[in-house]
Amino acid sequence: MMTYSGYLRQPHYYETDQMGIIHHSNYIRWFEEARVDWLAFLDLPYYKIEEAGIIIPVLAVSCEYKEMIRYEDAVKISVKIEQYTGTRLDFSYQISHQKTGNLLTTGTSKHCFLAKDSNRLLQLRRSHPEVHQKFLETFEAQNEASDD
């Protein structure tokens, strides 16, 4: 299984405050961009998930700022599944400076799977076994890689 190498991001000027530092509200958007990119990497682009009748709402999100990110700082956002149950999917994020590798920000997001037409909780193992299998295999591969 190929490993996701991360989402590369060059900050935009409009994302900064008057000091040229990325405004704190943008980090949550960056997590979403990275998560959507990660899903596309798994060949589960969000439009395919929605076409299958699945929505993945955010239940909780957190962000811890370790160092400031400035307009000129290109970053890499790493995405990892922290927990997968078939009804829940929790991620962790690490934002690092592309050149130095310094860890700048960490975060998490927690999600569940709902039926798009009814907003009822889905158990992917039953409702969408092929999607379930992809998430499960990725989660297990990440855990094996971190054990090495």
Rank of each mutant, 00 (worst) to 15 (best):
T3D: 12
K116M: 13
M19R: 09
E51L: 08
S78C: 09
K66Y: 12
N102E: 15
Q94M: 01
Y14V: 07
V131I: 13
N102D: 15
N143Y: 06
V58D: 08
Y46N: 05
G86L: 00
D43W: 10
V58Q: 08
D147H: 12
L103N: 11
K134E: 08
A141S: 13
L39A: 07
S78F: 15
I56N: 02
M68V: 11
H12I: 08
Q133E: 14
I21K: 00
T85L: 03
G86A: 03
A34T: 05
A52K: 08
E67K: 15
Y46K: 02
R88F: 10
V61D: 02
Y14W: 11
I69T: 14
Y27N: 00
V75A: 06
L44A: 05
G107S: 08
P11R: 01
D117Y: 05
M2P: 13
W38M: 04
M19L: 11
A52S: 15
G86K: 02
Q98S: 12
Q133W: 05
Q18C: 11
E67F: 15
S92K: 05
T85D: 02
G6T: 10
L122T: 01
N119A: 13
T138F: 04
L121P: 10
L104P: 02
I55M: 09
S96I: 03
E15Y: 03
W30H: 02
T108F: 06
H132M: 10
I55F: 09
S109H: 07
L124T: 00
A52H: 08
M19I: 09
Y47Q: 15
L39C: 11
P57W: 04
G53V: 01
S25W: 08
Y13I: 04
D17T: 07
F135K: 01
L42D: 03
D37H: 03
L89P: 01
T106W: 04
A40D: 14
S109K: 07
G107M: 04
Q94C: 01
I77P: 00
P11M: 00
T106M: 03
Q142W: 10
Q18H: 12
L124F: 01
N143T: 07
M1Q: 11
H23N: 09
V36H: 05
M2Q: 13
R29L: 11
L59Y: 12
K66P: 08
R126C: 06
Y14R: 07
I22Y: 06
L44P: 05
K76W: 11
R125D: 07
T100M: 05
G20V: 09
I77F: 07
K116G: 09
M2N: 12
E64A: 13
Q83V: 12
D90Y: 09
L89W: 04
M19P: 01
Y13M: 03
L42S: 00
I49Y: 00
A52V: 10
